[in-house]
Design a protein around this nucleic acid. Structure first.
Lengths: 112, 112
DNA sequence: AGGCGTTATGATCATTCATCATAACGACAA
DNA sequence: TTGTCGTTATGATGAATGATCATAACGCCT
């Protein structure tokens, strides 16, 4: 019996960032490509690309700088904007994670 | 640009309580029937009943005491167990709501 | 010139969720 | 006693979302 949560940010009712999306961006930054990030997380490349594209259009900002062709076939890396978003969101999520663990233990006691 | 969240509790990877489900239980308690609660929330009766049934089977406890037929056709009310769960969950959710508003304001500043 | 791994995007499939429809029930009134 | 009404309970269907498969384009390197 464990508490779970999700956290996301909306603009005009549309999700532009979430825990899962942040993890995706982090994986892109770490591996240098969308395809490697997708494989690492365990989702199809198509899904990863769609989510990133969705975030970009909703935010109206470029989050990932991509490049096709080349010695390793291409790649992707975060824009400075994306890196900043990600850093702030991670801090936020980290604080929340601690709070939830504490508050659940303090407030929630099962009846038998 | 606003933060949103969901909060739920799982047992063996299955959801047994969530913000939305808590609202449903609250509506049942307030209106005295599942159908009235469903109409109030704006979902079909079938959906409401399914969710409640799902919670009960997953928890292995009866949450809603129902009655068919009778002067008003029947009705439903929360069991003491459900009332206790609901009360604790609501307190938890309320604390979380305040924390998120504060933490978001403190941590999240947009680039331009 | 050809191969390779990547981005980009169309098309299809599956799974979940919402909705419609129907049966059973029991108090009350006629 | 019989019919009506609003509820619970459950089967069956439809819609929408998300995951997955398949294909084209690109550019460096051998």
């Amino acid at each position: 019996m464990q508490p779970h949560y999700n956290l996301w940010i909306e603009i005009d009712g549309q999700v532009v960032l979430s825990l899962w999306r942040a993890e995706l961006l982090r994986a892109v930054a770490r591996h240098g490509s969308i395809s490697a990030a997708a494989e690492r997380i365990g989702i199809p490349y198509r899904t990863a690309w769609q989510k990133i594209h969705e975030m970009e259009t909703r935010l109206g900002r470029k989050l990932v700088e991509t490049q096709t062709g080349g010695s390793h076939g291409g790649g992707a890396r975060l824009t400075p904007t994306a890196a900043l978003y990600l850093e702030q969101f991670d801090r936020f999520a980290h604080d929340l994670d601690r709070f939830i663990a504490e508050s659940f233990a303090a407030n929630f006691h099962l009846p038998d």
